[in-house]
Amino acid sequence: MPVLLEAKNISKSYQGKNRLFGGSLVKVLHDVSLQLQAGEILAIVGESGSGKSTLARQLVMLEQPDSGEILLDGKPFQSVTAIHRQVRMIFQNPAASLDPRKRVYQLLEQPLLNLTGLSGSEREELIYRTLDQVGLNNDQASYYPHMFSGGQRQRIAIARALILNPQVIVSDEAVSALDVSVQAQILNLVMDLRDQIGMSWLFITHDISVVNVIAERVLVLYAGRVMESGPVKEVLENPAHPYTQRLLQSVPGAGDSDRLVAVVQMIPAAEAQAMEYTGCAYRHRCLLADQQCVKSEPPMISLAGRSVACFRAKSML
């Protein structure tokens, strides 16, 4: 399968806020690379602070990465408008991402007005067709977002992403704010869209059990670095990185989680973020860490069908 969207060694830093005087730079993404193939769902798994939302913002050109490049169809990003047409984004909370003062019709018309030259009747036809595609009916086009349930709102958000017929959709925690039964509906819709129109999907989530259901490949992010990436089957059934393993153990019902209670180290959140790491980013929480992990950062190696950044990867398998 051809590679559709490719990110090469993306790094991004933000100016940290430090009381009165301008703070130091906080590096949120460290040389992140990924490849999304046409017609697949690639899941990006990470906890808060892993940089997954920052990554999404770079990929849809809401921000410019400090270094590295992003290629769509093998060509670097050129005009912002073109990218906004081809790479669309869905946010976590549909209640917050839909303008409360606009009717559904206006919400869906906005990208068409701004980014395409379609006539009024063409726009109308496309809006109703897209609403149908996500399982909403035409009457609902005149409603305001607050009149819908959470799941329906996320359908509207998906319709807004779909309506430009993009090549890639990036969704940032698109189902985390939804109830389980509704979450299942939205996940089914995502899979339907992949199978029916071959939509390529970059699916960012913190929930590894969701990854198992919908994605073909997965990329595990921790502290702005890729820990492990590869086909879902290999990575989740047989993790080669201690962090991936930890994530899997944390899934509710994964059994003996009593030993997880282990005393936690007191690292104030702000400090942990600004902390200068030497060696592996995960070594503070890793049970297998030793001197080598402190001294140098583990390189990305290919192992048993996936890429993994860990010195202990071989012994994990």
Partner: peptide
């Protein structure tokens, strides 16, 4: 906020962003 970001991704910019998206809110 997300809805303004979403509006920007829909291609709304500058004064249009102010009048169409921000001001009503």
């Amino acid at each position: 906020k997300d809805y303004v970001l979403a509006s920007r991704l829909d291609g709304t910019r500058g004064w249009k962003l102010l009048f169409r998206t921000l001001l009503p809110n």
